[in-house]
Structures are given as structure tokens and as C-alpha cells.
Design a protein around this nucleic acid. Structure first.
Lengths: 346, 346
DNA sequence: CTGTTAGCGCGTTCAC
DNA sequence: GTGAACGCGCTAACAG
């Protein structure tokens, strides 16, 4: 039993294949009665369009791609990611598009994947995440002529349109929260310097009103580095009373490091995680975190990309701002210790 | 500048399109010299096959699909998953196949996705994960005639071939470890009863030599349930001295619950997590866990599926056993308390 | 053997 | 509302 084709439907409905195509695509050229007969026939046969054939003539793949280049496998980010992908899916399914996912180790491999996908017409466009400073991807995609949308931050080069989150304003919100509690010596343990959003957060942290609130150190999102950075910060003479971590894994590691340094959280040290996840809720104390709606972020990005693919690129290369992350106060933030300088534990 | 086609190459090399096709596919019918000219021309033009056209005539999509139906978003599983997908990718890239990923909420939606993908010829086959008891997917896939491989456990219905992990033997290894330390009252906090591998673990736990070692309770992989189950177990008169959790999130929650019950881990209670992740390494104490090589599991499954798609389904419907999970001893397991019955804390 | 012609696969679209 | 060509690569049949 062969899969039914348009010709089969045509035969069954007693019309030409062309009429069937018109009817199925809901366009004028067939009478209402005929349209009904055709649709009924298609239904009876259980017809579904063959994507390959459709792609061939429409020159559209009906799919979009997502490549993730992540050497460091960080926990919370993965949770963020799965939800992000879920959101992307939700939007794509709605519009009958598929998602091609590719995981690679480096940006070069990512560009190679784009090149292949585009050459083979596997996808109509791609979502780009984790932009780096001096990232080669925007230019590469422009050169390929491949539609792309940046999910995460405006493209400094102004090449790719984006759906972005205002990291600077979020940082301000975090600092306001901590200052509101009375903190003055606040530190920031950021992600790798190469990442653009890290750079943005660092900049916002450093240029906060009244001058930078305290030291900022770069780490690599892993628990080991988070612990190391924390120990270093706490060993300083003028140690911070609050630390902001760029992800949940480092925040949890920082919590452990503080405990080992004999400090209580939040009594002696407040902790904020820039990523909310299960991790932040299973620790003791639970961690105050910045929470983003990853699902909606994904669906928004996908919707924006699809609109770019249409005939009338609504909005053109305009950037779309996404919600500011919400600060979710939990047990890890409290006023700083009364005494100006608490002596560290043994 | 149109994308180059076979005809373009033919023109450039001064031969017919057919000759080009033969040359590009490395099959006999063209002389060595001509083949070189053709390949050079193709190279010069930067030709790449158009997947749509190729799919249309070969009736192959050059892609495989993976649908994940996961209402509960559990943390560690996601880490496992990303690595699993990475492994799948690695294998697929090797063989020029793409991966279509789809995230849904329920098994019904998953079957719908299979139906659509297959009808549209979007994929050549699928990887199926998280088999349930009385799972409708194997039969549905068989009815569709869609090649599929089960990643996770042998199909009880014997319909789908699989790459499986011996949960029963792993459970025995865990119990041996705990008994070796001197534990006699061991409990098991499992995942949802509907999951097949949960059922297998429960069965293995219950039928351990010398009778079941202790109580088994079902939870749903969330921290809330893990804590609840733990509190219930620890409140019993004859409380266990060791608990095995079916995932890392519940194990961590159990750790907290034990602490709140006034019990020290591992002095009063030993904990084992059936899933290794960052989570198991950032807690205090760190958690003894069962670790699986998710990446290799993914690549093995993908390789097996691809071999099923070939003309000579090597191995046919045979099941392939994957490595036994390795028990990684950490700080959360130790001999049980000396006194026959330690009084619970306040 | 080397290479060509013709037609297929399936849905879309243009001219009549 | 129809017939026919098209998109692009594959391949059976055929000619040199």
C-alpha cells in the first residue's frame, strides 16, 4: 500500500492534480463543491504532504536549526536550555516546522554546521545562542545569506537581529536588592570573559552608581571555579558581604566554600544566583536567584525567526527586548552582619 | 548567483548530468579522468547535494528523530539527556544524518509526532526513550512501519529492538555495596510506577537474595516527593539505615530531609543516587551515585538505529546490552550506626 | 566499458 | 478548472 499522492486524490475526486493542489492549499481556482470533494478524498486516503517534494518546489525546508557549542557542560544552563528548546518547539509545531538540533564543541564546528545545513537546504534559518565577543558567527551567517536570529543579546556588530535580555538592568536590580538589605561590599563571580552576556554583566557591575560595589572575578561556570573564586574573595581582608554568581552551579559551590570558610549563609554572606533551577531550591539555605522564563524566551525567539523568513520580514532587523529576569528572593540573602568586620572562621 | 546544480557541473565539465551523478557517487560508469574533471568542477562550484531533491528520489530523509515526552522536568535527567543527545549527534554527523528533536508533554503527542514525521517523510527512523509499562509506542511504530530503536530497556512486547541497560544487575551492585558496608535495612525511593525501568529496579530490589531488603516507595522524581518519601521512611519505627533514590534530585532532597530529621549522613543514614550529575558533587556530603556514560549510550543507540535502516539490518531485531552503570562511591555511604537502633533527632 | 537520453519522485504553478 | 513544465538528483535502458 503506497503512500497516497496528490494524483491519487485527484483520481479519487475525479479532477486534475493541479486542482487538488489548489484545494489543499486553500487558494481560489476551485469551486466550493469540488474543494469539498477533494478534501474528503484526501482525508479518506489519509494524505499528508511529502516534505521532500514540497521543499523541492518551494525551496523551503520547513525546518529551522539550532546549534549549541558548549565545551563546558554546566548544569543549570542545561535546564534553561531544555526549556528554551521546549519553547522553540511549541512555536515551530504551531507553524509546522521542525527543529534540527546539533551539539558541537566549538564555534568553528558550529559555522561548519550552518554551512552544510544551508548548502543542503536542510533548514530555512537558525537560532544563534551564546554570542561571544568578536564572534565570527554573525558575519559568517551574513556571508552565507542565511536567515538567523540571535537569542540572547543584541549583536554588537549590528549584523543579526536579536531577541535580547537586558543584563545590565538585571544587574542593577540585583545590586539594588542587595544594597536595600544594607550590603556595601558586593562581589561578582562571572562566567568566562569571552561570553558577551558575561561582559555585559561585568560592565554593568563595574559601572554601578557610586562606583563599582566591589571586586569581580571571572570563572568558567564550573563548581570548581566557583569554589575557588569564592575562597579567594572570602580570604581577602575586606571580604564581601554578598556575592553574585553568574550561574547556579557556581553559586552552590560558593555556598559550600563559604561554609568551609566558617561563614554562615545568609548571616555572614549573602548569595545570589544568576540562573534559577532545581539546584537553587534543594540547597540549604535555598538560593535567591534571577529567574527567566526560558520557555517563553524560546517561543519568542522562534516566532521572531519565522517572521523573518516570511515574505514581509516584519520588523526587519529590529531587535526585540525580552522580559527582564525576575529576582526571586529566597533564604540566601539577608542583611549583612552588624559588625563591620566579622572574623572568618578557622 | 543560483546554487549550483548537477547540470551546472555537467556543463562545466562538458559531460551529461548522469555522468556527474555517477562520478559524485563514486560508482562505475565513468573513466578516472572524467571523474577527476567532474569532481574538480563540482569543487570549483562549491556544489552540495540538495537534500530535498535527494530525499525525493531516494525516499530517504537523511535524518532521524527523537521525541521526548517529559511532563516532569527533572534536573539530572536533563544533564543525562544533553549528553545522550551529544552522543547521538556524534554518530549521526559521522554518517551525514541530521537530528530532529521534539519535546512534548505526553505519549499521545509523541505518537502524533511520529505519525506526522513518517507521513511527511521527515525522518528515516526514531529513537524511543522512557518506555512505560504497557507502552503504546512500540505497537504504534510497528503499525506505522517506522523503523525505531528503543534506548533504555528491552521491549517487553518484543516489538522494538533496543539498546538496554541492565537495571536489575545495577540494583544488585548497589545492594551489594550497601550490604558490604553492613547495611541490612535498605529502602528504595523509586520513580513513577509507570516507567518501565522503574518497575525493573523495583522488582530487582524486591527480589534481592534473602528477601527484599526493606521498603520501597514510589515518588515522581521531584525534590518535593523525594523529601516526603524520605521523611516517611525515617519516621518508621524500624527506619532504614540506607536509602537508594532513583534520581539525583530526590537523593539531594532526601539528604535535606534526613538532616531535618536530625540524622547525619552518612553516619546515621547512607544515600545512593541512581543518576550521577553535578548535583551529586556539590552537596555535603557528596553523593555516592550510579554513573552511566550517556554520551556513549547515545552514540551506540544512534549507530544501532542507523544500521537498522540500512539494506542489511545487521543484527535484525536483536537487543544490544549497554555497559552496566558504574557505582561511584562518594561521601554519602558508610557503615550503618553501631547501635541497633539510633533514636531519631528531635 | 564510457557516456547519453529519458523518465521518475511529488507537489506547485503558469499558461490556456 | 486542466495540461504541462519545473525543481534536482537518481537510475534504468540504451548507444557509441
Amino acid at each position: 500500500m503506497r503512500r497516497p499522492t496528490i494524483t491519487d486524490i485527484a483520481r479519487r475526486a475525479g479532477v486534475s492534480p493541479a486542482a487538488v493542489s489548489f484545494a489543499l492549499n486553500g487558494r481560489p481556482g476551485v469551486s466550493e463543491g469540488t474543494r469539498r470533494r477533494i478534501l474528503d478524498a484526501a482525508d479518506a486516503l489519509g494524505w499528508q504532504p511529502n516534505t521532500a517534494a514540497r521543499s523541492l518546489s518551494s525551496a523551503e525546508a520547513g525546518a529551522i536549526g539550532l546549534v549549541v557549542a558548549r565545551p563546558a557542560r554546566t548544569l543549570g544552563v542545561e535546564q534553561f536550555f531544555m526549556q528554551f528548546i521546549s519553547g522553540v518547539q511549541a512555536e515551530l509545531s504551531e507553524r509546522s516546522h521542525a527543529l534540527l538540533l546539533h551539539l558541537v564543541e566549538e564555534v568553528d564546528a558550529e559555522i561548519a554546521a550552518y554551512r552544510r545545513w544551508w548548502a543542503e537546504r536542510r533548514v530555512d534559518g537558525v537560532l544563534v545562542v551564546d554570542l561571544l565577543e568578536d564572534d565570527p558567527r554573525p558575519a559568517a551567517l551574513r556571508d552565507l545569506g542565511m536567515p538567523a536570529l540571535l537569542a540572547g543579546g543584541p549583536d554588537p556588530a549590528g549584523v543579526l537581529p536579536s531577541v535580547w535580555i537586558d543584563d545590565a538592568r538585571a544587574m542593577t536590580a540585583v545590586l539594588d536588592h542587595l544594597r536595600g538589605l544594607g550590603h556595601e561590599r558586593i562581589a561578582h563571580v562571572s562566567g568566562p570573559a569571552g561570553l558577551l552576556h558575561t561582559a555585559r554583566r561585568r560592565a554593568a557591575f563595574g559601572s554601578a552608581p557610586h562606583g563599582g560595589p566591589g571586586p569581580g572575578v571571572a570563572a568558567d561556570f564550573t563548581d570548581a571555579e566557583g569554589a575557588r573564586a569564592t575562597s579567594a574573595l572570602l580570604a581577602a581582608a575586606d571580604r564581601p558581604t554578598a556575592i553574585v554568581y553568574d550561574n547556579d552551579v557556581m553559586a552552590v559551590a560558593g555556598l559550600s566554600a563559604a561554609r568551609q570558610a566558617g561563614l554562615a549563609v545568609p548571616a555572614d554572606l549573602s548569595i545570589v544566583s544568576w540562573e534559577d533551577s532545581t539546584l537553587c531550591r534543594v540547597t540549604h539555605p535555598t538560593l535567591t536567584a534571577l529567574s527567566r522564563d526560558a520557555f517563553r524566551f524560546g517561543s519568542t525567539a522562534a516566532a521572531r525567526l519565522l517572521s523573518l523568513l516570511g515574505p514581509d520580514p516584519a520588523g526587519g532587523t529590529a531587535d526585540t527586548e525580552f522580559d527582564l529576569p525576575a529576582l526571586v528572593p529566597r533564604e540566601s540573602t539577608a542583611p549583612p552582619p552588624r559588625t563591620g568586620s566579622v572574623t572568618p572562621g578557622p
